[in-house]
Structures are given as structure tokens and as C-alpha cells.
Design a protein around this nucleic acid. Structure first.
Lengths: 122, 122
DNA sequence: ATCGTATTTTACCATTTAGTTAAATACAAA
DNA sequence: TTTGTATTTAACTAAATGGTAAAATACGAT
């Protein structure tokens, strides 16, 4: 995603990491501080802090301020844009599943015929 | 997305680039060779070739073989996984739009009251 | 004023990414 | 067998990414 600076690229880029996706999943259950977010990962706090910055730049999270804590809050709105973009291709994957489905049905009916033949052969 | 080697990360990573998204959009209108795909971009052929490799690794395209051409064919299936992942957050962005909607309605009703006051003031 | 806790910044490193040019490969056609 | 067309590979570069350790910052509590 290197030099790409457009919003959608930033969102997809942010999602292209399992740690960041897990952080979003955690935040879907409510806001959390950095330490709490870091806990499940074998990673230092600065590393998590960087991931949070990536999510923040993609506007997938917002940072609060409560005393010395800077809790993270999920901001799902940009996911809508990502979802809309992907949605344009829905027909394509549905079509290919249909084709697969048809293919499997065809195979099945062939197998049935073959079974019949085999039964005769027995 | 550096070391992330899981499928979903590869798909999101592949989508995190406007050139690659444009290539997919072009392929949704039918298969195409490398030169044709390269045409709209101010980029050399090897650069496009690399982008295609990224899309291929994410299984978003399949390469054919026809004489010296290696046409690219869209394979939208992995987009379903991406869409499903994002779909888990739908309620969150819908909720925030609802909140925004409510907020706007509230503002509006306040504005109306204010207008009434202003009318009096005139 | 000092201490403790939460978080970020800085400086650094290794790897990946996105691009380039130039050379190599694959295959049809003459 | 040479030539032309389509595409990839190789070698290189610059910048971005993902991580670290150590120092700095922010702020509450004692």
C-alpha cells in the first residue's frame, strides 16, 4: 500500500493485518486502553501504539482522553465505504458459486448414472 | 501488511492500492491481457506485472494462457471472505449513522425553534 | 516535589513494497 | 532461423512497514 494516500487504500491497508483486525474486533465489544488492547499480543506497547496510529489514520478508531488514559473507540463508518466497494463485485462471486453449484450438481447426476452402471456390472 | 501471510490479510493488502482496485474493476468487464491492463496507467509493464502477481497471490485473479498472451480473469470469491469479515461490523456503522441522523434531527428542531425566535426579533 | 502508571516519541533495524531499466523468455509468423 | 510481440525476471533503488529498546511525556496520587 506504500505511497497510496487515498482513504479507501488506507482503510484496506489498515485491515491488511491480523493484529489490527483483532484490535477492531476487541473494540467492537467496547472501548479499551492501550495496555488492555496490547494484552493478547506478544508485542511491545510501542508496536501496539503504532498499529493504533494506523487505525486512527484510517479513521477506524477515535482516541478519547480520560486522565492519563487514551481509550480507543471503534469508528466503523469507513468500513461502509470498503463494504460498498466490495459490494460491487457481489454478483461475480455469487455467479461463480452458482457455476460451481451447477457443476457439482452435474457431477452428482453423472455419478448417479455411473452408480447405476456399476450396479449392473456387479 | 509486511509479514502477515494469512489469506484475509493478503486480500485486504491487495485491495489497498488504487491501481490494483482499478485493474479489478477493468477485469469485471471481462478478461484482459497485461498490455491492455497497463494502458490507463503511467507505469511500466513490469510494474503492472508485479501488481498482477499480488492479485494472483490473493487469488483475486487467475491467469490464462493463450499463445503468448496470459490473460487475467477476475476471481471474485475471496472478496466474499473480505465482505463477510466487514459485514460483522455493519451494525456499528448503521448505529452511528442512526445516532448522526438523530443528532441532525435534534439540531433541526432546535433550529426551527430558533427561527421562530429570530422571526420575533425582526 | 517525587513517584507511579499510561502512553508516545525517538532512534534504530530488517523486511517488504513499488517502482525503475535492461535482459531474458515464450511463442507466432515470415 | 530470424523477427516481432507479449510478458516476466533480475538487479537495483527509495520509501514504507513492523518491530525493538530506551528515553520522554502526561497526569494522578502521595
Amino acid at each position: 500500500m506504500s505511497g497510496a494516500t487515498d482513504d479507501l487504500s488506507r482503510v484496506f491497508g489498515a485491515l491488511a493485518d491480523p493484529t489490527r483486525r483483532a484490535i477492531l474486533a476487541r473494540l467492537s465489544r467496547g472501548e479499551a486502553g492501550v495496555q488492555e488492547l496490547a494484552e493478547p499480543f506478544d508485542m511491545t506497547l510501542p508496536a501496539i501504539s503504532k498499529h493504533l496510529k494506523v487505525l486512527e489514520k484510517a479513521k477506524l478508531i477515535r482516541r478519547g482522553k480520560d486522565k492519563q488514559w487514551r481509550p480507543c473507540i471503534l469508528e466503523a463508518a469507513p468500513l461502509k465505504d470498503a463494504s460498498d466497494w466490495i459490494g460491487d463485485y457481489r454478483q461475480f462471486w455469487e455467479e461463480s458459486f452458482e457455476r460451481l453449484d451447477e457443476y457439482l450438481k452435474e457431477i452428482q447426476s453423472r455419478e448417479k448414472k455411473k452408480e447405476g452402471v456399476d450396479d449392473h456390472a456387479k
